[in-house]
Amino acid sequence: MNQVALPRPAPVGDSLAMAGRALKLMMRDPITFVLSTFFPLILLLLMTASFAKIVNPAGGYDDYVDVSLPLFVLMGIAFASPVTAAAAAADLRDGFDARIRAMPVSSLAPLAGRLVADTARSALTVVVVVAVGVGLGFRFTAGFWAAVGFLVLPLLFGLGLGFLGLLVAMRARDTETVVAMLNPLLLVGSFLSTGLVPKTDLPGWVQPIARVNPFSVLIEAMRALAHGGATTRPVLEALAWSAVLIVGCGVLAVRGYRSGTRPVA
């Protein structure tokens, strides 16, 4: 008796196939690249041109790039994440995930694949923004491995934000609403941080918020990794925040995803 080999899901292979699909869709959609490269560059150039002399009249424009670059790297990653969330919401709405569930495909492959593609896009943002930043006067002065850490930390944070976006996408399935809900949240996070002005120039009531805000925590860690100084504590804090976002939003997003794609009895 020959046994028919049932097709079995292969989590890694399935996820990579889904990542390939997500990347292919990204390639065909110019807005993703506009958001993840031009947007942070425009912000870097234009915010520096307009605010550098206001924030620090004694310094030059390159000094402002040196301190503010981490924020613009993070903003480039953060503001692209609603696009991922919107794409996830569109897939759910159109029944893509329900279709996948009916096939011998690992059930979490669509989510995992999306986040892999997302991280690839974040890496592009980091490379492009840092390259232009170095051209404008940004300097790594704390050694090679610290510089590597500078490039990797935002990717972990981006992964956490990716899970946050997926979580919102599970709740509000309309793509436009997903984007409209996430953008104000990301704006508040990126502004009420130590990225644009030094903490002491923020109003007193904002300073404690800016201190614990994950954007500031990441920014302080990246500054330490680029320019030296005590790195252990800020880097650990940044890793902790990223872990909280990844685990917290991850668990909730996966749970929402499972119940959302469960076949209707």
Binding site: L187, V197, P203
Partner: peptide
């Protein structure tokens, strides 16, 4: 509103 409040909050002192 978010933009008005954020710009006001972040840049008032340096301005």
């Amino acid at each position: 509103l978010v933009f008005a409040l954020l710009f006001f909050t972040v840049f008032s002192r340096v301005m």
